[in-house]
Design a protein around this nucleic acid. Structure first.
Lengths: 344, 344
DNA sequence: CTGTTAGCGCCTTCAG
DNA sequence: CTGAAGGCGCTAACAG
């Protein structure tokens, strides 16, 4: 037989301890003043009966779930897995549990996830690198009382923000600038497709042009933020634009996919082609040659997001914005062209 | 101002629709028979008022939370991230949400997590590769009505089981056998430290001996299932036992760490040293040389675990056990020694 | 310091 | 096909 007996309740404990339910409630919640003797006795009974409060009942009356949702595009991306750790490490000591939902890079699924969540399920929401346009995202977020977004701007009243990037979609500029300084002139760009939600590629090209860097239309492709997408896009890009001297990937996975494609096409790295990624996942440092990358501290982003959320859940609804800057880590996948006379 | 107004409740909907609360309840739960006209009207009002049922209230009365906990040792290990996807892909269509808790490879933290969870928080529990000994784990699991464990045996009444391995802690044997066939005779083994919970290393050595394979005491180290631990242990192992012809890692991260250590020590792979990992994470195929590994389908393990859990949550408490077999993927990090005359 | 009263929002049961 | 009463287990607010 499976256990059938009713769970022990507050009332059971109260009866057995010879006190009122309220007293027991006060003891377990450490609220109000209780004599040591009573407290002790109550604790003993709780122990004996293996009493554990019913969360649902408590939530019904307090409106607190002690649950936080973390909505991410892809937890198999080491960047997001690391971010999860940051979030959990901050929330757990505060007794919050983390509900993780993965949209698998599918905007429709992200939407569905947000629709299924609400304030009776969670106390707060951290939405990471949303792939939804503002017109879809903001109405959904309005339904939640406490929201923090990462790598995504939000109108002030909606929630606080952590940027993992000095400007959304602009992280790659650091790579362009660096390569340009090293003498590279024909630089391909595998931008992440969701960047197009907030940065028009034409604008991006113009902004690069202001820095004296040319990015021709045919030198860039939008691609999904995954290894295989990077491979495919990189392969295509190098096939059609063999004159490229370097490729910048929107993240490490994409850059590494492109790097593999380049190798398969017989290019040598960094001699025939420079490659730059972004994030600095473990894989980046372990391939040969190791990948030059734009490092972002995913763990810090996660823990900061959690801290901002705790603030909000604690009642402080002040808008806060935290920007982590991106750091260039130079490794073997790029080199200087300055001594080659390869400048144009 | 923040929203202050009370959430709309069943009662609000009932009043506005001119029906009883019960009718509304039946409509939203698709239970009982309701006239089309009434149903339609109720749905309209629900829409107008943007009504959403209060989860806590519902849970209080039904005892269903529609929440499943996934307890894992380390979500930054791609193996577990992939497994999460398998779990979620099965559970979401059934309307379950997934609470993820990460023990960070810390048994005490795993214990703490399990203690904080209970049947009023979740309907079911999937515990992955528990790092706790049976004496600690089993009493904790008994408190839950529906449990599935992965890569870990469980007494029948406790829960169902998915093995990602032909026998717990024995996956590496396939690697030993393969290397032995290829002429390797001095094989180091970086076993995962938690294996010692269920497989005594002496027994393991004896079992290998039965296959005619020698594993000397000084050729094996227990190490944490992470890259850095693999690096450190591998470094130490190769320093003290330079005669080793190969190293088998308990998982890919460890093997890759050891591989890096070998390279840092000036060994060439596979010429000076063979390396085998386990899991087949993306990184394994992307390093140079690519890593020979014992592939396990993490996604399948996750989705099978979720399916077994659904069965249990659906009331079918039959014990079920699913074993995935491990597949050897031979890549460039190992070679044949048979033509070398290097046999002993 | 401790107890009493009154719900939280929903579903189960039993009547119509 | 629809409704009324009762209670799930807990805590807020007020008494003493």
């Amino acid at each position: 037989m499976v256990r059938k007996q009713r769970r022990t309740t507050l009332e059971d404990v109260a009866r057995k301890a010879g006190v009122s339910m309220m007293t027991v409630s006060r003891v377990i919640n450490h609220t109000g003043r209780i004599s040591d003797a009573t407290r002790q006795r109550v604790f003993e009974v709780i122990e004996q009966l293996d009493y554990r409060p019913n969360r649902a009942a408590r939530t019904l009356v307090t409106n607190k779930t002690f649950m936080v949702a973390l909505v991410q595009p892809d937890i198999t991306n080491p960047y997001f897995a690391e971010m999860f750790r940051g979030v959990e490490d901050v929330l757990r000591p505060e007794d919050y549990r983390v509900l993780v939902a993965n949209s698998n890079e599918t905007p429709a699924r992200e939407q569905e996830i947000l629709e299924m969540l609400d304030d009776t399920t969670i106390d707060g929401l951290i939405i990471c690198s949303s792939r939804l346009p503002d017109s879809d995202l903001l109405p959904l977020l309005e339904r939640f009382s406490c929201v923090v977004a990462t790598t995504r701007a939000l109108p002030e009243p909606i929630g606080s923000v952590v940027h993992s990037d000095y400007a959304p979609g602009y992280r790659a500029v650091i790579g362009f600038r660096y390569l340009h300084e090293q003498g590279y002139r024909r630089i391909g760009y595998l931008r992440l497709q969701h960047y197009d939600i907030y940065v028009d590629i034409k604008t991006f090209q113009r902004d690069l042009a202001k820095l004296g860097i040319q990015l021709k239309d045919e030198w860039t492709r939008a691609c999904a933020p995954q290894w295989q997408a990077g491979y495919d896009a990189g392969y295509d890009l190098l096939k059609t634009q063999p004159e490229l001297q370097a490729i910048i990937g929107g993240n490490d996975l994409v850059a590494l996919g492109a790097m593999r494609a380049a190798l398969d096409l017989g290019r040598t790295i960094p001699d025939d082609l420079g490659v730059i990624g972004a994030d600095d996942i473990l894989l980046a440092s372990q391939v040969t040659p190791p990948l030059t990358t734009l490092k972002t501290n995913a763990y810090a982003v996660g823990s900061m997001a959690a801290q901002l959320l705790l603030r909000r859940m604690g009642g402080d609804m002040t808008y806060r914005e935290h920007v982590y800057t991106t750091e260039l880590i130079v490794r073997g996948s790029t080199r200087s062209l300055l001594e080659d006379g390869d400048k144009e």
